[in-house]
Nucleic acid binder design. Structure first.
Lengths: 141, 141
DNA sequence: CAAGATTGAGTCGTCAATCTTA
DNA sequence: TAAGATTGACGACTCAATCTTG
């Protein structure tokens, strides 16, 4: 049946939207958005700083988006921009001490929210969902 | 394993993002976005017109978003605004002949894209994906 | 010229405040 | 006062054009 197939698609998009909104709400109290938290996470995993272009690659988005995201993180005081001593074209996004602390809060909130969401599923179901979702999207990246 | 669980979540969001981008790309040639197509679909299903507030409800978004979406559809020439004879507070979004034609094109492109995406899955897998995605998001709406 | 980053314009979404009509 | 719609300001994203440096 065709209806079942396009329902799979609609369900996926709907569920993802709902889940993301849920996560966004849980992050609210710490003043971080999903996007900002993801950026801070990349900086932490990279040891504290990254060229803006590399940050864009890791976030799988366009460079101009990162420019603006870092602008907002900079006004928040969670990131500063620094010159790259090796290449004067490059600018480094550097996580601040305040950014590290806020990241830690956000990370906990996100883990809580995720496990709460996924608790609706058994471990087996979670694995299946991940596998099916990946299978759907594979080759379209 | 905790990793598996949060991977389920990440996979879902990633897959949804990829699938939506794929769909958006396929709609490109007809000049409709996913959002615009959805709005036109609601108008068609409602028989051609809807008060803006009801359109917002059906699209499950905020009213101010619909105001702007209809603004853009109006500049496209796919929708016009009309007064409601019964209540002078409400404004009707009315699909135009050009809007109907464009909707038909967009609907076909979307169906093609959806079936192409879902063709990566068996009918059984598609049902499972839909069920698991819904189960994850249930109760968070 | 290539690369890295930024700017400007536009889409899609939110929220809070406002205007008009019931 | 409520309801319907709009506006203004913002977040997060895209693309095309631009500026600076290599």
């Amino acid at each position: 049946m065709e209806e079942g197939l396009s329902n799979a698609f609609a369900s996926l998009l709907q569920a993802a939207h709902t889940a993301e909104a849920f996560l966004e709400g849980r992050l609210q109290p710490c003043g971080l958005s999903v996007a900002k938290l993801a950026a801070l996470q990349q900086l932490m995993e990279a040891g504290g700083s990254l060229p803006l272009g590399q940050l864009a690659e890791r976030l799988e988005c366009v460079k101009s988006n990162v420019t603006q995201l870092v602008d907002r993180l900079e006004t928040d005081g969670f990131v500063t921009r620094a010159p790259d001593p090796n290449d004067r074209r490059t600018r480094l996004a550097v996580i601040t001490p305040a950014g590290r602390m806020r990241f830690e809060e956000g990370r906990k909130l996100r883990l809580d929210a995720e496990s709460e969401l996924v608790s609706a599923l058994s471990a087996d179901e979670a694995r299946q969902l991940a596998a099916l979702a990946e299978k759907l999207a594979t080759g379209r990246r």
